[in-house]
Design a protein around this nucleic acid. Structure first.
Lengths: 317, 317, 317
DNA sequence: ATAGGTTTTGTCAAGCTTTTGTACAT
DNA sequence: ATGTACAAAAGCTTGACAAAACCTAT
């Protein structure tokens, strides 16, 4: 509390060490950013000590988001300036990695998300269909998934977790996506025969939904996908992978999925020289940084997950 | 310089390592592609570091899709340039074409139509067979007929009208469809015995083809069809209808068919309490809105024609 | 040089290895054909590497067709040239390809069933796809389902019941059928909006498979189907049925499904004036002759089940 | 079908520069 | 607190390789 100083304008002001603690950015680094790129420009005490306002801290957080996405520090400045001058943009998205700014405000993602959620709630196939078709027609597949569908699934998953599983909505959306995916998978598997992937999902929660999103992206990205529409035990999958000469097995799972059970199954399975299993979906939030020998997590963002899969399977890597 | 404009608008810029991670292409390779073929040309920082925009990354992904299909890197450049300059194509589909990109419009009806026409022109049974089987495997019968086969027949009819009847093609297609229909009719008539329909066609033009298409739809829709493979005089049909206790008689006819002759036959025939004759096929274009007592036209679209038949037969049932 | 024109227009160009892989003709052979008979004349890169266009590959395929019919390579050239200039004369009967190779009796259902089962066991999507497409091309949907797919599912269900759940096969077939169903459902639901049916399935066993078969038949028969891809509790279904104004709810279930549980759910559910639930699938073997107030069984044969549904929905309409 | 020569293409290496987080002296 | 310095990481360019794929000709 001693650190907080009242601001004339109103908000509390924080000294640098506090900002550092809150954001996890070394104070030295904060100063460097200011000096080198003018990224944040806190007010000062008469003696010259920095005092950061709320907005400054938020700004730091936004900087971190861009950095996490791989944008170089030197480029972040412009992005932030554009974002603030043009349209402030959506702020509330639940997932930290992929929301906010993004400059291009002409597509109202949040609005579309809400529409999707509502269409699901009312079992309105036609509306859902329009939303889907429009999103896929307007944007590249990855964008549509990352921005619209993946956030929707994540939000729904949370909503459904609270109450006592209203299965109907989940199954409805599942059915819809599967139908839509069917077409793509069909065409995709005729065009690409090479990097083969087996996909299944873990029991519990929305594993199937995560699987569908990923399958969608993967198929569009040129993978040959074999889908298993159910929670298939790992050892059977491994067997199937051998028969189909697949490069990878991907298991999608929801938050609630039983990761320990999976580990157990894996340890029992005949893992001789078997490709590592990749895990995808919101379950990966449990698995951050885990890097076991035969079990690794893909990014929760489908686009990036695809990148990782490519690395793992492609000869270009 | 569309790129500069696009970037002026904004959007994050990514360094090469991120592009590499996202796409799975080694950064060395990315540079090589640029150096050797100018495949991607990211903007640069003042000091020369590459900065890739979203579009650049998408471009890389499109490159990968071609590579996966076996196209050599050196050729991809041209393809991409063409794709962006040429026509997006296909607008009649009910769902606004998924991706616009080359990625194969999800159902390229027009393409399929052209293929069928070509297969007929070259008397290529195998190809025709593939096209037929595929259309029936992928789509509901009605869709396949309405979208693919009916338009094809109509187009061929026009083409054939100009020249002096190259009978060969017509007979070829007729024979093919008849063969295909045979089995279905056989099975269909075993399953459905109820709403019975007698079908025949008028002499002149492609009457037989129209008949076959309609028979296809009708049989799939659950009607019991009795086909007469030739232009049977109306009074004989009426007689046959009595014997088989059929609900309706449908006569298919082409544009050139002699509608007046039909009227004459009808007026002579013993029309006591006989169901009205339905006319189908391109001949109906002459008959629009005509609704005589004992002669009415079905829609030219088989699917809708079936609907009308259902109504008509249900009323009496 | 139509070819050059065609290429100027664009289209991907493939190196010889790809053509070889696609057509199955050794690349050495391809070169030999070109050198000796000029059968295919691909364009070249400046350095002399061959680049085949789409048309070239098709040409190779046509060559293969002739070869298969026993024509010596040296003769094929003339044939192809004729075909493109004149009107080629398909040597024997209008449809030569149809039955010749297959000596098969009219329809060897049992043989096909075994093939399907084997394809499932080996996770061979392509084969399954061929079998499926062929069955749909040759027979009316109902016949194909009743004769081929329904028996297969029943047999597999028994097989799977004995051993300890080889989930993989089940999920594989499920995924395949779902994919195949997707498109048809999409089109079907655009054509027919009227007799609406909600479908879900009971937990345990192959409920999902039964559901898919029935959905197939029903969609082809003109019903508007809303599928729920999961075992949704009855009360939620009833709620959804109200919202969608559906006429009927159909629950598919396997032998092992818990019919008592269903009865319990039903009795708890708010059944005020609600349509009776229909049960379908092998579970109906348990239910024979049962005719409770709000729970009745459909025939296990999808075709007949459809008939019952038609009756039921017509009555109310 | 093989042999001998060429082209393609992903990757490496060397030598140098830029970027960026952190350390240290003022 | 500031600014300079530093070092690791990441880039850039040019040149070179080597395996795979091709070509021609015997």
């Amino acid at each position: 509390m001693t650190e907080k100083v009242a601001n004339a304008v109103g908000g509390p002001l924080y000294p640098i060490r506090e900002v550092s603690r809150l954001t996890g950015v070394n104070s030295v680094t904060l100063r460097a950013w200011e000096r080198r790129y003018g990224l944040i420009q806190p007010r000062r005490t008469p003696k010259g000590h920095r005092l950061y306002a709320r907005e400054d801290i938020e700004r730091v957080e936004r900087i971190l988001q861009w950095l996490n996405r791989g944008v170089p520090v030197s480029q972040v400045g412009e992005l932030l300036d554009q974002a603030s001058s043009e349209t402030p943009a959506e702020e509330d998205s639940p997932l930290p990695a992929f929301n906010t700014e993004e400059t291009a405000p002409d597509h109202d993602w949040e609005g579309q998300r809400l529409e999707v959620i509502d269409a699901v709630a009312t079992f309105d196939t036609n509306r859902l269909e329009n939303l889907f078709t429009r999103s896929m027609g307007l944007y590249p597949v990855n964008t549509a998934i990352s921005r619209l569908w993946q956030p929707v699934v994540e939000r729904l998953e949370n909503a459904w977790a609270d109450q006592n599983t209203p299965m109907a909505q989940r199954c409805f959306l599942e059915s819809f996506l599967r139908t839509r995916l069917g077409l793509r998978l069909y065409h995709g598997n005729h065009e690409n025969t090479e990097p083969r992937i087996l996909m299944s999902y873990l029991p519990g929660g929305c594993g199937a939904l995560w699987q569908l999103l990923l399958a969608f992206s993967a198929s569009s990205a040129g993978f040959y996908i074999t889908l298993f529409d159910g929670p298939v035990p790992v050892n059977e999958l491994i067997e199937a992978a051998r028969m189909k000469e697949a490069r990878t097995i991907v298991l999608s799972g929801a938050m609630e999925a039983d990761i320990e059970g999976l580990r157990r199954q894996l340890s029992q399975a005949d893992s001789q020289g078997v490709l590592p299993i990749r895990v995808a979906g919101s379950i990966t939030r449990q698995l951050r940084d885990t890097d076991e020998e035969n079990l690794s997590a893909l990014d929760i963002d489908p686009a990036r997950a695809i990148g990782q899969l490519r690395l793992a399977t492609a000869r270009h890597g």
